[in-house]
């Protein structure tokens, strides 16, 4: 083989090696691109849920605050549900994509002890309440759909749908070793202190406040309104808006003003359909606070004695429990 042929042969061999090397490089580049594409797609997909969670947390921290929603819900229940209280540690908040779930228990004082009354399960999507579930432990349930006349606490000018005489008869038939909760409608408007002073040996737990609408139970627009009021007893529960309150009346008025901007939410949380807070706050600021009905609790015998009071117009019997009065 002459030198020229040798040179050609060598060039052919080198070319073949280079071509093998080139195809391996291309194969590796294709593989690398393939994995880059797969992993970048995976990255985008996996970032969606955590990013949405961060946005959700951001919304409930800086937008409509989760604590605001919780405050509105709890304060609404304090003023619309007679004789109820909430426990701080019983609140449970869960956050899912763009929604918040709030569950808590509501309690009632019957006699000298606090009993579970209802469990609430509220689901918010952003700030809208989309689900409300309640599970009641009560034997006597306050009318769910209020009308002008089906209230348990009635203004002096309102009639009631229950048989008042029958309620007193039922009360007198209860064993002495029981404690009861009773809804007392008064014969005229009184100050809360006046009522508390007149009712000895029992606890006045909640007072329904006259807001200029309860004589007809209709707002200026003709809508049926719900009774509102405030807890009378000192409440040392850490969560309670009435904790360390020097004047429950002032706290009540402040609460109404705080709830007012969120009235739609308050109406959805409350079992009642209309609050008409604007109109009622104006009335209270002009005329002050007076009560037309209170919720009391204590020994059956002591509650029965209320029938003798001139100020008591009607009594509706609430929950009954075995004796727990330790005073």
């Amino acid at each position: 083989m002459n030198p020229y042929d040798k040179l050609i042969q060598k060039a052919k061999q080198d070319g073949g090696k280079q071509s093998d090397k080139g195809s391996a490089t291309i194969k590796r580049a294709i593989n690398s691109s393939k994995w880059r594409l797969i992993l970048s797609t995976l990255t985008v997909l996996l970032l969606i849920v955590p990013t949405c969670y961060m946005l959700t947390f951001g919304y409930y921290a800086f937008g409509t605050k989760s604590t605001t929603l919780m405050d509105v819900a709890s304060k609404t229940l304090y003023i619309t549900e007679p004789n109820t209280t909430l426990e701080e540690m019983e609140f449970d908040m869960d956050f899912t994509l763009f929604s918040m779930n709030l569950t808590f228990d509501q309690y009632k004082q019957i006699g000298d002890e606090i009993y579970p009354a209802k469990e609430y399960d509220l689901q918010f999507i952003f700030k809208d309440l989309v689900k409300k579930e309640t599970n009641s432990h009560l034997e006597k349930v306050y009318p769910k759909n209020p009308t002008e006349t089906n209230q348990w606490l009635a203004h002096p000018e309102q009639r009631v749908e229950f048989n008042g005489a029958n309620e007193w008869r039922v009360l007198s038939g209860l064993p002495e070793e029981t404690v009861v909760e009773a809804y007392i409608s008064l014969d005229k408007l009184y100050s809360v202190d006046e009522v508390v002073d007149s009712m000895e040996n029992i606890d006045v737990t909640w007072a329904a406040i006259y807001t200029g609408t309860e004589d007809t139970m209709l707002s200026e627009d003709g809508d049926v309104v719900s009774p509102i009021g405030y807890p009378v007893q000192p409440d040392q529960t850490y969560w309670s808006p009435f904790r360390d309150s020097t004047s429950h009346e002032e706290t009540f008025l402040t609460m109404l003003k705080e709830i007012e901007p969120y009235e739609d939410l308050a109406v959805e949380v409350s079992p009642h359909k209309n609050l008409e807070l604007d109109e009622r706050i104006d009335y209270l600021e002009e005329n002050g606070l007076a009560t037309y009905g209170v919720v009391v609790t204590g020994p059956t015998e002591e509650i029965a004695k209320l029938q003798e009071l001139e100020m008591v117009r009607h009594m509706k019997l609430g929950e009954v429990k075995l004796w727990n009065w330790g005073r």
Binding site: M54, F57, G58, A61, E88, F95
Partner: peptide, 13 residues
């Protein structure tokens, strides 16, 4: 960080 800091802000319990 977001879960920890904002978590405390939105859930006081």
């Amino acid at each position: 960080m977001v879960m920890f800091i904002l978590g405390w802000m939105i859930n006081p319990f």
